[in-house]
Design a binder for these strands. Structure first.
Lengths: 199, 199, 199, 199
DNA sequence: AATGAATGAGGGTTCATTCAT
DNA sequence: TATGAATGAACCCTCATTCAT
């Protein structure tokens, strides 16, 4: 309907402010985390970003497009480097998972579930940007262990990964605290689920 | 601020219609599942229940109180009877978990996450009514297995339960289908995580 | 979408204010005359009627429905009683025509032309309520004259009527004043067009 | 307030593109016909003309000035050449009238009526460019007939013209089709109104 | 001269809630 | 008790216009 997302722009005219670009996306992510999609108003995003509302609509066709774009920019952040030791890697990755959701906010996961039908692109973006990369890291770590002979082949890695990551959601939903030893406990249980020999 | 909930009403005046009571709560749960909290309008609840809006406010102080009350009534449904075999129980319980969320709708979980701060009573109700009973069933099954000697004591049951249940959330979020063998795969992995001897 | 136009209402609940009903329709007609459809805001109608905006939407599904309903209520007003003399009747009807448009405002005709495609119900309402009744009065007067023998049958009455009424539009558009003798001049020319014998 | 219209520009600097000039005015007339004044956006005019919005404001002080300028350029088009026979001339002119409005669009007439107070220059332009020339053609044809002796002097030519032209507006507003014989019927009635002897 | 970006000011519509019957 | 009417407050989005390149 309206011009969107940097059309052509052969250097003519006033350049689009990249500061505004960033401020808008940051504001959108922040507000989503704080109040969710439905209660996030374009007015509030504009105000938080320090721009006017039409500046939002110059960039995104509507609220839905804005929040999807905002979350496409969300990054998992510095993933922990693999150490070669599966248990250590799992612990690091579970700690990292905790950090990611602490920054992103579990409320965004909530929005994905609530708006699954009205906003399918949002959960798609989250899967591609955050969820799947996290799983892949675990997959890689397990593959390395198998390659090292530390783990017998044929283990049900996908299920183990689902359980390890899911433990986070389940604990969060149950309202239990993520105490110091949580990553270790889950890592150990995951190793057992993978059929790793006792340490 | 607090729910109105049948104040006094010592037999005087016309008694409230219990048909309306049920219709209202059913409508609220249905609409929450379908459109989420924010897009659920009191108008729509009233219409679906076949009553007028003030009839809602006569019973509940506001939208928040209504949805909390509605979800306090939600029941896990007929839990699977324990069989005495841990694996069979776990499979049955995971299947039941799937049924529960298929009926309740994962969007309600989404609302809990999104409205965690604005509507803390909702997640509390869900925990008490659905989440915790499900965990307790698993705890009981595991305790029975320990008592039978099928499982060594000292296993990290809580973590295993968290992982087994969490696997559901993780798979759902990843958008993967719940195929026929999923409960068995998770049950087996859970048994391994619990340190059960190979079958 | 929303309840509209007095549904059922078996005497229950608070009765809809008929004062508001009238005030709203009056305000809508007034504003249409003053600023046209596009610049007429629901806000302004509500303010002029002394009600809130939702009170408008309780009665009409939207702006389009409101203005159509408002103009369906517009009445030609007290039509001049036939005298039996064709010339006198034509003069009276042309004077009446002038009165009608002075009250209704030619701008409403303008809106009909401008919004012909977007708001077809409006011109339909105007035709049924104002335009066609005016033509019919002329038709009747001419038929009476034919019946009296004052006019030969076979005259092209429809074209003469079209021209008599059209003279108003043409003069208005040309920006010429409607001086004292205008109705008589048009009536005389119409009689000649009808083939009436010179007085 | 007044049109900007090539201020000074004594050969210095880059000259304004005359291609743009035409494209802009054409786009404005087109859009006015299609959607009316209020719904015609400067954005749409710019897009249809293939220029940017400031290019519009460089030439015209605002939307009002643009549409007035655009309609000052509208031409009646090739008027039918007089034949010397009044009836034939009237028929030709009525047919031409139909063509003009078919091209210009009656919606522009509507805008003139609606925006009479806010945009007085628009109706003035239309009068000078289209309405008055049409009347003058009829006036000339009638004067020629008088001069030829085909019509007695002293006929109320102005009223007859008003009626002949007005018949178009009245028929259009009534929603009746302009069938094949319409110009002839009106021409004949007009001749009678002018007191021409029966053919 | 021309462009794309930015804005202040609404516009139509909906909602949770309260009022009057 | 229950109803339909009424409201204040937002919300999403668009427009005429101006700015910076």
């Amino acid at each position: 309907m309206t011009a969107v997302q940097r059309p052509a722009n052969r250097g003519r005219g006033r350049p689009r402010s990249t500061e505004h670009d960033d401020a808008i996306l940051d504001a959108a992510v922040s507000l989503m985390r704080e109040v969710g999609y439905a209660r996030m108003s374009m007015e509030a995003v504009a105000a938080a970003a320090g721009v006017s509302k039409p500046t939002l609509y110059l960039r995104y066709a509507g609220k839905a497009e804005l929040v999807v774009a905002a979350h496409e920019r969300v990054r998992v952040g510095d993933a922990p480097a693999p150490t070669g030791d599966l248990r250590a890697d799992l612990v690091a990755q579970l700690r990292h998972l905790h950090d990611v959701f602490a920054r992103l906010g579990m409320s965004v996961i909530g929005v994905c579930l609530t708006e699954e039908e009205s906003l399918p692109d949002l959960i798609a973006a989250l899967r591609a940007r955050s969820l799947e990369p996290g799983r892949q890291m675990m997959r890689d770590a397990i593959a390395r262990a198998v390659h090292q002979g530390a783990l017998s082949d044929g283990a049900d890695a996908e299920t183990a990964i689902e359980m390890a990551i899911g433990a986070y959601y389940a604990r969060y939903l149950a309202g239990r605290p993520f105490d110091q030893g949580w990553p270790e406990r889950v890592a150990d249980a995951t190793l057992r689920a993978l059929g790793a020999p006792p340490a």
